[in-house]
Simulated assay, not measured.
Amino acid sequence: MALLRLDIRVPLRHFELGVALEAGDGETVALVGPSGAGKTTVLRAIAGAVRPRSGRVTLGDRALFDAERGIDLPPEDRGVGYVFQEYALFPHMTVRQNVAFAGPGRVDDLLERFGIAHLAAARPRALSGGERQRVGLARAIASDPGVLLFDEPLSALDAHTRDRVRGELAGLLRELRLPTLLVTHDIDDATALADRVGVVSAGRVLQMGTPAELLDAPADAFVASFVGSNLMPGTARRVGGRLEVVLEQGAVIHAAAGPDGPVGAVVHPWDVTIGADGPPAPGLNVIRAPVAAVTPRGDRVRVRVGPLVAEVGAAEVARLGLAPGRVVRASFTPEATRLVPLGGRPPDGA
Rank of each mutant, 00 (worst) to 15 (best):
V294C: 13
V199Q: 14
T41W: 02
A212D: 13
M93H: 09
T40L: 09
G48E: 00
D158I: 04
D61M: 01
F90N: 02
L59H: 13
L3K: 15
D189P: 00
P341Q: 04
V340S: 04
P341N: 03
S54Y: 03
L73R: 05
P153K: 06
F226N: 11
G203V: 06
F90C: 07
L6N: 08
V252K: 12
F150D: 03
T184H: 12
A37F: 11
R326I: 12
E152M: 03
Y82G: 07
P218L: 11
A217G: 03
L169T: 02
L247C: 03
R125H: 13
R302Q: 14
A323H: 13
L31Y: 00
P218M: 10
A236N: 06
H92C: 04
A102G: 14
A289Q: 01
A318E: 15
L243D: 01
L89I: 04
V10C: 06
D158C: 07
L178K: 14
L157H: 07
V147Q: 09
E213P: 07
R44Q: 13
A142R: 05
A350Y: 15
R319I: 00
L110H: 04
R13G: 00
G241R: 09
L247W: 00
A336G: 13
V95R: 12
G18A: 15
A2E: 12
G70E: 03
G33F: 09
L6V: 03
L215C: 08
L214K: 08
D216E: 15
V99R: 11
P262E: 09
G130A: 12
A88Y: 02
E248R: 14
L181N: 01
A315K: 12
A350N: 06
V99I: 15
I253K: 10
I187P: 07
A67C: 11
P259T: 02
V328H: 09
G344N: 10
L243H: 03
T94A: 12
F84T: 02
A126F: 06
G258N: 05
R204Q: 14
A350T: 09
L17Y: 01
V340G: 01
T295V: 15
T161S: 15
R204V: 12
V291H: 07
G343N: 13
P347G: 15
V147K: 08
P282G: 10
R329E: 10
G36L: 12
R113Q: 15
A138D: 04
F15A: 07
R242H: 12
A170N: 14
A156P: 01
G241S: 10
A30I: 08
I141K: 11
A122Y: 06
D189I: 00
H92Y: 00
G278K: 05
P324L: 10
Y87S: 10
P179L: 06
R242S: 13
A255H: 11
G26P: 04
L149D: 07
R56Y: 11
L342P: 02
V19Y: 05
D108W: 11
E316N: 03
G228C: 10
M93N: 06
R237Y: 05
E22C: 09
E22N: 14
